[in-house]
């Protein structure tokens, strides 16, 4: 099939592309570092702060259990937040850029 060729270097220098990838990079790596750090607090905390993990916060439920459960909701929350930002900002910026080049 006929394939349109693009001037990739020129697109890479387009200020809109630069803005897009800078915002994406900041968001993606920033939140990745956050979520990874939050996750590693779990095995580290269980090993080095067992007394904190044993504190009962609600009936028999202790802090360690609540913290492990929170990992699920933090991951889901982050996924939903990313979907919202990507659908609202990143996809729109990409569309505008692509349409102009198209």
């Amino acid at each position: 099939m006929a394939q349109k060729t693009y001037d990739w270097a020129a697109i890479a220098k387009d200020p809109r592309f630069i803005e897009l990838h800078e915002r994406k990079t900041r968001f993606l790596f920033g939140w990745w570092i956050f979520s990874t750090a939050y996750y590693f607090l779990l095995p580290i905390g269980a090993a080095y702060a067992p007394d904190l993990f044993k504190i009962q916060v609600l009936g028999r439920v202790n802090f360690g259990y609540a913290f492990a459960l929170s990992q699920f909701f933090v991951s889901w929350g982050l996924a939903m937040y990313y979907a919202k930002v990507a659908n609202r900002d990143f996809d729109r910026m990409t569309r505008e850029l692509v349409q102009e080049l198209g």
């Binding site: 993606l28 990874t36 996750y39 095995p43 360690g64």
Partner: peptide, 21 residues
Amino acid sequence: GYDGFMYSVGWLVAYITVLLI
């Protein structure tokens, strides 16, 4: 008990890397 639950968490968190990166 608890250790099994803690073990399972990493299998989900792994998908944050898949999603974001």
